[in-house]
Design a protein around this nucleic acid. Structure first.
Ligand SMILES: [Mn+2]
Ligand SMILES: [Mn+2]
Ligand SMILES: [Zn+2]
Ligand SMILES: [Zn+2]
Lengths: 146, 146
DNA sequence: TTCCAATTTGTAATTATTACAATTTTATTT
DNA sequence: AAATAAAATTGTAATAATTACAAATTGGAA
């Protein structure tokens, strides 16, 4: 299928040897914008690949990160979230439902002013927290009820 | 002493009843700009308050956070970091030495455009990663040596 | 003082992640 | 193709951060 060829190429371009398990993990990330954790990925793939080990998911994701094939989001204490989109973009984490939203269209933060101070920047994370539109709506409705 | 009065007032202003332990934790945060973890705070205070429990440090910091008296930094998987400075400002985490630096003078990110989309923003985190000036210097020197 | 609620403490439980050795798969050499 | 070596996967055990919880302590109100 066309899709798996795309995954193989993406891995090879990042110097990662493709395996059944690595392709499954990367494929999940590329087809889901939900910034999943290891547990979410493992739960989704385990029924397909019945012998899959959670350690393999950890191994794959750590390898992907070292090769710049995925971005990591340390957005809460409940475990690392992963993102196949490595372009710099912002995120919004809803404190109510826990969903993580992408924020494009944010102004770019400067690298040059920081590097002028001697820092060598390799990542830039922008993250808001609060209530997502759906949860904010429920919030205001239930407070109207009072 | 003048210092402890400042701490008591800060806690009271945030609706937090001051106790020996809470004052010690908040005092440590106010006198150290290093964004410490629970373990760091506990290790620093334990010799002074010999009966201090690590659970109490967790309890205090969680309470502070709920009352808006401290900011939390989920900047890596190695545990939550705490900051007595609740003003919005950026951070830089060195991937070599692990130090976390404050970044003031960053351009303010927009709240209004995000809230126009229905999000209710309560926190905004900006975090760079890479090598700090000291570690970047060592890096370039050792590569010159080759 | 007596009583009650808040706080602290120690330990046990939970969860995320890594360490590691054994097995399986894949690539290389003969 | 068979033998061999290297890489990847797996299962389990160890580590580390955090929370749950009940007992003990503290501090203020009656
Ligand atoms: Mn994203
Ligand atoms: Mn700071
Ligand atoms: Zn939500
Ligand atoms: Zn450094």
């Amino acid at each position: 299928m066309e899709n798996s060829i795309k995954i193989v190429n993406y891995l090879l371009q990042h110097g990662i040897r493709p395996s059944i398990q690595r392709m499954a993990v990367m494929g999940y990330l590329m087809n889901h914008q939900n910034h999943p954790t290891v547990d979410v990925i493992y739960a989704a793939l385990s029924p397909q690949i019945r012998t899959l080990s959670k350690t393999t998911v950890y191994n794959a994701l750590n390898l992907f990160y070292e090769h710049g094939a995925v971005a990591t989001l340390d957005i809460d204490e409940k475990g690392t979230h992963y993102d196949a989109n490595c372009e710099i973009h912002g995120h919004f984490k809803c404190l109510q439902c826990g969903d993580i939203f992408d924020l494009f269209n944010l102004p770019n933060l400067p690298f040059d002013t920081i590097e002028a101070d001697g820092f060598k920047v390799s990542e830039c994370h922008i993250c808001y927290k609060g209530y997502c539109p759906a949860c904010a709506k429920i919030e205001t409705e239930s407070s109207n009820h009072k």
